[in-house]
Amino acid sequence: MRVHVTTLQGGLVQVRIASDTATGGTEATAAESTGPNPIAPEGKELVWGAGSFLVFLVIMRVFLFPRIKKGMDARYNGIREDFESADSTRSAAKSDVSKYEAEIATVRAEAAARVDKARQTLDQERSSKIAEANARIATKRAAAEAELEAARNAVRDQVAAAVTSVTEHTTQLAVGKSPDASVVQKAVQQVMQTGARS
């Protein structure tokens, strides 16, 4: 005889009395749950898993990982060096370009200075020539003017002489005696001057 006591939530209690022979039939269904716990670790699985992991870890740690890491680092450093050399090349090229540009600028400035100088000399020559020509013109004009003056004076003298003689004649005719030459001359001169002035 066995006594089964079932306690459940809520305090309900069931008491069941059964004979040993009666429970024998249910052993088949109970056997299913009496097997090893599905959650409990199995010894051989634990040991083999641990062994394989530890071997894997040691191989990785000692041999494989340093090799791969070294290769990766070497390549990364190579790439970084390449980058740096490319940078330096680029900066060198840039300095070359700036040097070239500076040279071009000096050459250009020189050319501009030369052109300016040439223009200046040209200007100077032209102005000197113009001045020369002007001077020549001026002397010519002065000579012409002097000639003119001389001619005019000559004409005036002739006119004065003519007027004097005419005045003498007319006065002789009118007065009957020849006038004083100096007076006539003076008068004529006065008239001529006023006439010339007017």
């Binding site: 051989k44 699985e45 083999w48 898993g49 394989s52 992991f53 071997v55 894997f56 191989i59 990785m60 041999f63 494989l64 990982f65 090799r67 791969i68 070294k70 290769g71 990766m72 070497a74 390549r75 190579g78």
Partner: peptide
């Protein structure tokens, strides 16, 4: 057990083959 061992072997093989290659 076989799966656990194979995992370690495959992992080792992968990294071994990788480590044998030219890194550059």
């Amino acid at each position: 057990v076989i799966i656990a061992i194979l995992s370690a072997v495959i992992g080792t093989a992968l990294f071994l083959v990788a480590a044998m290659k030219d890194a550059r």
